[in-house]
Computed example of a mutant assay.
Amino acid sequence: MPRTTATAKELDPRARQLLRTLISRHIRDGEPVGSQTLARHSGLAVSPATIRNILADLEEIGLLASPHTSAGRVPTAQGYRVFVDSLLQLRPLPEGEMARLREELPAGTGTQALLGSASELLSAMSHFVGVVSVPRREQFAFRHIDFVPLDAGRVLAILVFADNDVQNRIIQTRRPYDAGELERVSNYLNRHFAGRPVAEIRATLLRDLRAARNEMESLLAHSVELAEQALGGDADGALGEGMLSEGMVLAGQTRLMGVQELSDLERLRELFEAFARKREILQLLERTVQAPGVRIFIGEETGLAPLEGMSLVTAPYVSGDRTLGVLGVIGPSRMAYDRVIPVVQAAAEVLGAALKS
């Protein structure tokens, strides 16, 4: 999480309590909060006039704003930043919801199914958009491969990975291969490389080819050509749902249509277009992949114009000593952070454990 701003440390206890109460009420009700409301709910023995003076000070330093149509105030993006960094009180996710995560993200499930379930769960539990970046295939070992000739220049590669994911990939070859040649290559790869990471297989094949002599040279050359394409990351020729070639799984975009802050249809259209492109949001997720723990981007901190007024809460999911990807929730800056942060944190832990198994 980004460091607490200097203004948070400079606030006196009364200002901190009023800011915490105002933001909590605004998140709950979605309305500007006035001094009378704060006098009733802040727990401070101060007059509304004193509260108004403190609110004016908070507005002056950029933590609050006054909508023209109301005497109340609302938090700014900087105000939300101070709130999540130093005023928010977090509790662990209830055991019943942890059990739901473990039940719906069970170990032994294929990666595509786990990622889809994780994004759906994040959306359902937060009521906003759930997002999960997809691990690169190079991070997984492959278990078995078969090749099937299709026509003169195309071969179907059927790959089974160690995480139970099955992918069918159509690859272009420099020359035709008959069924016997393809069987010899698949037998060689399965015998010598099953259980090894994809990137390691390509490097080893090239090294062996340079050292090969006589009859092995032809087999290795064919193995290099076919394996280079079949195991070459997230190939364009992958068949099926395509989640692993898109880099990111999203769920719950339509939940944003009922969000008060997104009532402007043009604003909503820009946001949905950003979801459809995926590229910018995926780059934002990748910025956090090596950062431990929960990260929160508020408004312009995302660097993406369509996410103005939105927040992204992320956490990396880890299997063993490998960070496989990042998951998170995208929603309005007026979100219940005390609810969303534990959900994101717990989902990352459960997804990592499921993939490790």
Rank of each mutant, 00 (worst) to 15 (best):
L205E: 12
E97F: 06
R196P: 08
R334T: 01
A274S: 12
A71E: 12
R174Q: 11
G30D: 07
T173V: 15
L90D: 12
Q345S: 15
R322Y: 10
R213P: 00
N214H: 10
Q112M: 03
A347T: 15
V46H: 02
L18S: 00
Q283H: 13
D12A: 14
L209V: 04
A274T: 10
A45G: 09
L11E: 12
L182T: 08
M98L: 14
N187F: 04
R191F: 07
I145E: 12
L87G: 04
V155A: 07
E286G: 03
R73F: 12
L182G: 10
H68R: 10
P48D: 05
P2D: 11
E138C: 08
L38C: 01
S123K: 12
G352E: 04
E280I: 00
H222M: 15
V198G: 03
N187S: 11
V129S: 03
I296H: 02
R16A: 15
Q283W: 02
G352S: 07
G34Q: 01
P149V: 06
G258H: 05
L324V: 10
E241C: 07
G328W: 05
R175P: 01
V224N: 10
H127D: 11
E59I: 02
P13I: 06
L265E: 09
G79N: 05
Q112I: 11
G62L: 14
I341M: 03
V340N: 10
S35G: 03
S133I: 10
E103D: 13
S86N: 11
T37C: 03
G242N: 05
H144D: 14
R20C: 01
R207L: 11
H144I: 04
S357F: 01
Q290M: 08
G195C: 10
V134L: 09
L206E: 15
L231V: 13
V344F: 03
L268K: 05
I27Y: 05
E266P: 00
E97V: 06
A235E: 09
E120S: 14
V313M: 01
F193V: 13
G110D: 15
L11Y: 05
A152P: 00
V84F: 05
N187A: 12
F272P: 05
V313D: 00
G299V: 00
R213L: 07
A203K: 08
A152L: 11
F272H: 06
P135E: 08
Y317L: 03
A212N: 14
V344G: 08
Q89S: 11
R91P: 01
G233K: 01
E215D: 12
E286C: 02
L22E: 04
N187G: 02
Q229G: 06
V134F: 11
V313L: 01
G108W: 08
L90E: 15
A15K: 14
E183R: 15
L271Y: 01
L271H: 05
A251N: 11
L19P: 05
